[in-house]
């Protein structure tokens, strides 16, 4: 069964007096445990599409089913709960919480979103940090580690909830080539180990090469 099914998905928003059609009736399906990339130039609708899949932005029309749930009808709270349960996020700027240590950053979704018992969540955090190669960096704060390490922590945070799907918007944009490849490699490894679907957006052709499924977007349409 497909993990994501999108039918005639559109997104229109108003910018000033202008109506912008960011996504224009796209159809696609994504299977579980796949490694997918949305590519396209700036303004092509990559981020908008990822935001819709991630229940951060509701579509204007069309249907979108994620992990068997019609996400177009979720209210704000339900969407938050759904994200906390099924979706992990990796951001371009890492977006770690500066007042929390590496360990606490990874623990945050289990603690504040899923409310798991202490022992269970700490076991999961330790396992994930070890898996992303940050097992010995748990006590450090985000300002004490490098960009690549921050993104590893971000990947661990996205996966720690046993998310079925990880969305990464330009995850390598702020990293050098070598680190970018390491992060993409790590994401693939995690996919292989945990069966998590990774969807990322990029316009870097060398990163795109790592993807197993590529959707090309242009002016809000899939080519």
């Amino acid at each position: 069964m497909s993990l994501i099914i999108a039918r005639q998905l559109t997104k229109t928003y108003i910018a000033g007096d202008i109506e912008v059609r960011a996504i224009r009736g796209v159809d696609f399906t994504i299977e579980p445990a796949s490694f997918v990339s949305f590519v396209g130039p700036s303004g092509s609708g990559k981020s908008t599409l990822l935001n819709m899949i991630g229940c951060l932005d509701p579509p204007t029309s069309g249907s979108l089913e994620v992990v068997g749930q019609d996400t177009t009808q979720l209210n704000r709270r339900q969407a938050a709960l759904f994200r906390g349960e099924h979706i992990g996020f990796v951001f371009q700027d890492f977006n770690l919480i500066p007042v929390l240590t590496v360990f606490e950053n990874v623990e945050y979704p289990l603690q504040m979103v899923q409310n798991l018992p202490k022992q269970k969540r700490q076991d999961q955090v330790r396992e994930l940090l070890k898996a992303v190669g940050m097992g010995d960096q748990g006590a450090k704060f985000p300002n004490q580690i490098s960009g690549g390490q921050k993104q590893r922590v971000a990947v661990a945070r996205a996966l720690v909830t046993n998310a079925r799907l990880v969305l990464a918007d330009e995850p390598t944009a702020n990293l050098d080539r070598k680190t970018a490849n390491l992060i993409i490699g790590l994401m693939k490894e995690m996919r292989d180990e945990f069966g998590t679907t990774f969807i990322f957006s990029t316009h870097d052709p060398k990163v795109v090469g790592n993807a197993e499924t590529i959707f090309t977007l242009e002016d809000g349409k899939l080519l």
């Binding site: 704000r76 994200r83 349960e85 977006n95 500066p98 945050y108 504040m112 979103v113």
Partner: peptide
């Protein structure tokens, strides 16, 4: 603001 966006995106409910 950015941090609020992050914690909201990863599933923190508005009440929290």
């Amino acid at each position: 603001i950015n941090e609020i966006g992050t914690i909201a995106a990863i599933g923190t409910v508005p009440n929290k």
